[in-house]
Design a protein around this nucleic acid. Structure first.
Length: 290
DNA sequence: CATCGACCCTGCGGGC
DNA sequence: TGCCCGCAGGGTCGAT
């Protein structure tokens, strides 16, 4: 369930260890660990030196000293761990990367195999180089290229539920099911409100909430580092104590005390306060008929 | 083109 | 105790 804050936490942890190192050997332990549709063999990154670790939304990649990037997506359950080479192989280890280090190696572990790694050519986009598989992903709210007015326009011109718009990585990236629920709770907007019906100020408020929620998660996620053993666990970044909506079905809203509701939404669920987050902005008393 | 919904996958927990 | 089913969900792709 890693969303932007978790992926950024992983990126920072990885950068501490891998920057400057050379990929000596990459071993693929599961056929689904590589991105289907990728044309370049993952093994072709062997021999490359890593100059940086970059991220856009939930995608992260090793910047290499060649016209290629090693991209990773954690999917639902992916983890990237820097662990002792002689430690027992976790059951769901999909990829191992040897940097020629005597003691440590990188392991990509992914129980549900929605995650992957891929060697991707670079494509120039707005004076920046992006891996091909990330070219369609919009900038995230912390990126320099983030354009608030454009995002608000993109949301307003669509006729979809606001939560769907928040989850659409081509409008704005990095937001997943958990932080979408949280942000909508803070902004007091019902997840099923039609995107085109929202005012500019409501959308600006939602974006503020998205930033606030992810910023505070990032702050907490960034504290668990250790120079010797970097546990960059994609799932460790959630702090259930601070969640206001997600996973709180039938628990009291921390603002008004009403019970949080859960509804089905596109193969998953939405959590919201039925009182703070009205489906319509104003509620007129129901007219009696007949 | 825009939007929707099925699908990929595994582990876990509830119901019986 | 053990089986079955639903649920968790990011991204992609085919259908409408």
């Amino acid at each position: 369930m890693p969303e932007l804050p978790e992926v950024e936490t992983v990126r920072r942890g990885l950068a501490l260890y891998v920057t400057g190192k050379r990929i000596k050997r990459l071993e693929i332990l599961h056929p689904r660990a590589t991105r289907s549709g990728s044309t370049i063999s993952l093994k072709s990154v062997e021999g490359a030196r890593i100059t940086d670790v970059a991220r856009r939304g939930k995608f992260l990649w090793f910047v290499l000293d060649r016209e290629l990037a090693l991209v990773g997506h954690l999917g639902m359950s992916g983890q990237m761990l820097i662990v002792p080479k002689n430690s027992e192989l976790e059951r769901h280890t999909r990829i191992r990367i040897d940097f020629g280090d005597k003691k440590l190696e990188l392991r990509f572990i992914d129980q549900r195999t929605f995650g992957w790694m891929s060697a991707e050519p670079l494509r120039k986009q707005d004076e920046k180089y992006l891996p091909e598989c990330c070219a369609h992903i919009a900038p995230d709210i912390f990126s320099e290229e983030f354009d608030k007015a454009r995002v608000i326009g993109e949301i307003k011109r669509r006729k979809i539920e606001i939560k769907k718009a928040l989850l659409n990585q081509e409008i704005m990236s990095g937001v997943g099911n958990i932080y979408a629920d949280e942000a909508l709770w803070y902004a007091k907007v019902h997840p099923e409100r039609l995107s085109s019906s929202l005012s500019e100020s409501e959308l600006a408020e939602i974006l503020r909430a998205v930033k606030k929620v992810m910023k505070s998660a990032l702050k907490q996620g960034g504290t668990s580092f250790d120079d010797l053993y970097i546990n960059v666990n994609g799932e460790s970044g959630y702090f259930e104590v601070s969640l206001r909506a997600y996973g709180r079905e039938d628990e009291p809203c921390r603002r008004c005390g009403a019970l949080i509701r859960r509804i089905n939404f596109a193969n998953r669920s939405s959590h919201f306060c039925p009182v703070c987050q009205r489906a319509r902005k104003s509620r007129k008393p129901a007219k009696k008929r007949g």
